[in-house]
């Protein structure tokens, strides 16, 4: 088994996630794409952990899963708030940062 098998899979998933983040307008879909990105990273961590026979990879993957849970919680709360204020979750409409 090659290390690259897993790394390529992770890279492809990562890029698909990036594509999703960049093209989706719906806030929930953006969050899903971010989950995809995080999963790609996790594959990398676990693969390197297995490659180096080091438990740290798996441990950090677990930490990232926990962080992802927190991120989804807060992210969804924000999306709900946007929806409540604007009756829409189109992230491209949220442009209050405009300079």
């Amino acid at each position: 088994m090659f290390l690259n098998q897993f790394l390529f899979l992770a890279a492809i998933l990562f890029c698909i996630g990036v594509y999703g983040v960049l093209t989706r307008k719906n806030g929930v879909l953006v969050l899903m794409s971010i989950e995809l990105i995080l999963n790609a990273v996790n594959i990398n961590l676990v693969a390197f952990g297995s490659f180096n026979q080091d438990i740290a990879g798996q441990v950090f993957a677990l930490f990232i899963i926990a962080v992802a849970a927190a991120e989804v919680g807060v992210g969804l709360a924000i999306v709900l708030l946007i929806y409540r204020n604007r009756r829409s979750i189109d992230v491209s409409e949220a442009d209050l940062l405009q300079g």
């Binding site: 983040v21 960049l22 307008k25 992230v91 491209s92 949220a94 442009d95 209050l96 940062l97 405009q98 300079g99």
Partner: peptide
């Protein structure tokens, strides 16, 4: 500086 999150991303 459009303020559009997608563009920033």
């Amino acid at each position: 500086q459009s303020g559009r999150v997608r563009q920033y991303a």
